[in-house]
């Protein structure tokens, strides 16, 4: 499998990407930790979602993995993709079951979700050429 030349990314883009990566990684790490630490709000959210009680730890693991990948030099695009995936799952949960503004905490979570989604898009776009096969077509 052929490797991709990463030097097409300008130094400005690298800086922007790293700022976004760090912010997303912090948010995801915090979200992951709250799931592992049995945070009450998190338990309540996952109880509300059908069949998701035991999946809480799977999501927490994915978030932790994403946060880790975002802080690596060579794999941040995969971290951002995983982050975007979890945010999409959260978006589905909010739009179908939880709602966005029913209480203050949920509203905060919704805003954070949209913020992380936007930053993940930025990281993915900047690093798009790093994705094997598909990357070269963008």
């Amino acid at each position: 499998m052929k490797n991709v030349n990463f030097k097409d990314i300008s130094s400005k883009e690298v800086v922007v990407s790293w700022i976004c990566q760090i912010i997303i990684a912090v948010v995801l790490a915090k979200a992951s930790l709250s799931k592992f630490m049995d945070d009450e709000m998190t338990i309540l959210v996952f109880k509300t979602l059908k069949g998701m009680e035991s999946t809480r730890f799977v999501i927490a693991t994915i978030e932790a993995l994403a946060a880790f990948l975002l802080l690596t030099k060579t794999l941040p695009h995969y971290g951002a993709l995983l982050g975007l995936g979890t945010m999409m799952g959260a978006f589905i949960a909010h739009s179908t079951v939880l709602g966005f503004t029913s209480n203050k905490e949920l509203m905060m979570m919704s805003i954070l979700m949209l913020f992380v989604t936007a930053l993940s898009f930025v990281v993915i776009w900047i690093n798009r050429k790093r994705f094997p096969f598909i990357g070269q077509t963008f």
Binding site: G51, M88, I92
Partner: peptide
């Protein structure tokens, strides 16, 4: 998305993956 909404939220793992694939496919 329907299965996830109606029966088990875990189906949304597939909803998300296929949604990504659909977006890329649309772009192509």
């Amino acid at each position: 998305a329907f299965l996830g909404y109606r029966f088990n939220f875990n189906f949304h793992f597939l909803t998300v993956i296929l949604f990504f694939a659909a977006v890329v496919n649309f772009y192509f």
